[in-house]
Design a protein around this nucleic acid. Structure first.
Lengths: 344, 344
DNA sequence: TTGAAAGCGCTACCAG
DNA sequence: CTGGTAGCGCTTTCAA
């Protein structure tokens, strides 16, 4: 069995103390090879050589235990295999890498009870901070984080009861305004809201935003929401849609990306045309939109911006002990053929 | 500043030694509440209570440092935001979770030089084993793993020069046979191979497999491969395709998922029809296929099986010191409308 | 400019 | 059945 190469081995090899090695390990060097710490240039060079020769890689665990910082940040989303979230994860991974952090990912599967377990794992592993897309508005799973003063950024969705976190949220009222008005302006009236039945801040905001807009347009009497379970089967969704079609629905505002895709699929299977049979404004972009005809009109939030700003907020909290703050992201409407004027 | 709750605090709170706490922490309990270690039922209960009261979470770092095992496995893929890989990651995450392992993810972006950095990070963090989708056939980035005898499983692609790893690979010769023959049987003759220009074992195997099949069918004179950079732009791809169309290409066998999607997109933008203008057999499934018409014929490898078998192989190596072994996965042809008989 | 040594939280061995 | 204690690899103070 091979033994781990430790800092001691390096110290021996270079004929110095472990302290010197540690110092050099964390030093930055100027162009002459001088470290920015109290170690001579020659000594430092000897040490670097020894590190190289022995293929030494310091143990993060040992470092973590002795100085309290892990250099890890955790990212908890609903599902890392979903398009929208894995995109965000990827951007965070890149930024974190450049900033010298490691990124740990985990998925909740939208199950509140998994959040607690995942947080437990992350704390066990050691994280300096966490970016979380909460699967519900329930704050109880975060107790362990509060206990430990671990900085948290809520991304895209909020847990209003949890104190001290930062938040990066989409202006959902504005998103609803854009979506509903787009359909209205193109001549649709029986505009319905189709969404998942979930206890998530954004889902709720979008629903009330929708009703609010319909009211402003004087369409309260036509306003209607249809909700499906997040595990909805294709057959069930098709049933819901044909039911709607029978009742005269003209357009759907679908405020989640996954359901947008599923609905398009269901419409295709039902042989219904977009937008002639049902017009659509969806939410978030999907690679898939590029190939589908007509192009799906959607509310767009830039994943790169989402990732970048949430990461910056987190690092600010970790490194500068910045207090939690709230930031809003402005949604954009991307127009496509799925919401163009009804041909009568 | 709040202080970490440690095993000592728990020991004090319960009035026992840290050793007792550690034992209880790792014990399993039968239905009577008896731990499977030499600790009395009452003592154990007291300890569990203390753990609960103090919201104690053990430090993985400290555990790792004292017993050498991290309980982590690493999964390195090309890009965690790609459909195919994130699917695999998700399945591994679930299995690992159930088996008591944590999963660490990282992406190489198909850049060989990033593999080395990512492996460095993983070793730093501590991993008991690694599942790797290599970005090239170059073994040099894995030196650090060899040094440390860290078990490795290559998934889907191989690095033939690296000794001692396990491998779970697709039978690419069979995949090519299925794909080319499907097109041949449907009446296509000018079947071309469209792929990325990359130094990856599977890409090369698929290319030679394609030529081999064309030869067996007596179509050597028509066999042709077109290669594009993995960063190909839509404009470039469209150019390649219209060029091919001009030259009389009837069908493409596209042995990577991403390029399959990109090609479909390009065809749509060029106003070319599938399969009448160009027939297609792609590789790997994409959610997107469900909505696209015609359904894209493709070679299918089950991500869940890929994930499950590679994870099992890895755990076997970690826990039973099993030697590296090679396993093959049989591809399947899923028939869709994208390869049906040419209408003359 | 450098080294010695005291912990960090935990496990595992050994003595009771 | 239980507790004391010596490390694990690293960082960081304190002395030299």
């Amino acid at each position: 069995m091979k033994r781990r190469v430790t800092i001691k081995d390096v110290a021996n090899e270079a004929g110095v103390s472990t302290a010197a090695v540690s110092l050099v390990l964390h030093a930055r060097f100027d162009e002459d090879g001088n470290p920015d710490c109290r170690i001579g240039k020659e000594t430092a060079a000897k040490i670097l050589e020894a590190i190289d020769r022995l293929h030494y890689i310091p143990s993060g665990a040992a470092a973590q235990i002795s100085n309290g910082r892990s250099g890890n940040i955790g990212v908890i989303t609903a599902d890392i295999s979903s398009n929208f979230f894995s995109d965000i994860c990827r951007h965070i991974e890149n930024m974190a890498f450049d900033a010298g952090y490691n990124t740990l990912f985990a998925s909740t599967d939208e199950k509140p009870e998994r959040l607690e377990k995942v947080i437990y794992s992350m704390i066990r592993l050691g994280v300096d901070g966490l970016i979380i897309v909460p699967p519900s508005t329930d704050a109880s799973a975060l107790e362990a984080l509060e206990d430990r003063d671990i900085p948290v950024v809520f991304l895209e969705r909020d847990i209003p009861d949890y104190q001290g976190a930062s938040r990066l949220l989409l202006d959902n009222a504005e998103a609803c305004r854009l979506a509903v008005n787009e359909l209205y302006d193109e001549g649709y009236r029986r505009i319905e809201h189709l969404s998942f039945d979930m206890d998530i801040s954004t889902i709720k905001e979008k629903e009330s935003g929708y009703f609010h807009e319909m009211e402003k347009l004087g369409l309260s009497s036509l306003a209607k929401t249809r909700k499906v379970s997040q595990n909805v089967t294709m057959a069930e969704l098709m049933e819901v849609i044909s039911q709607a079609k029978t009742e005269g629905t003209e357009a759907f505002f679908i405020p989640t990306n996954r359901l947008t895709i599923q609905t398009i699929t269901a419409l295709a299977k039902l042989g219904l045309n977009v937008p002639d049979d049902i017009a659509i404004v969806g939410f978030d972009r999907h690679k898939f939109f590029d190939v589908y005809t007509p192009y799906i009109s959607h509310i767009y939030q830039d994943t790169k911006e989402l990732a970048g700003r949430s990461f910056d907020m987190l690092v600010d909290m970790i490194e500068n002990k910045a207090p939690g703050r709230l930031e809003m992201l402005k949604p954009q409407l991307i127009k496509g053929g799925s919401s163009i004027k009804k041909s009568l």
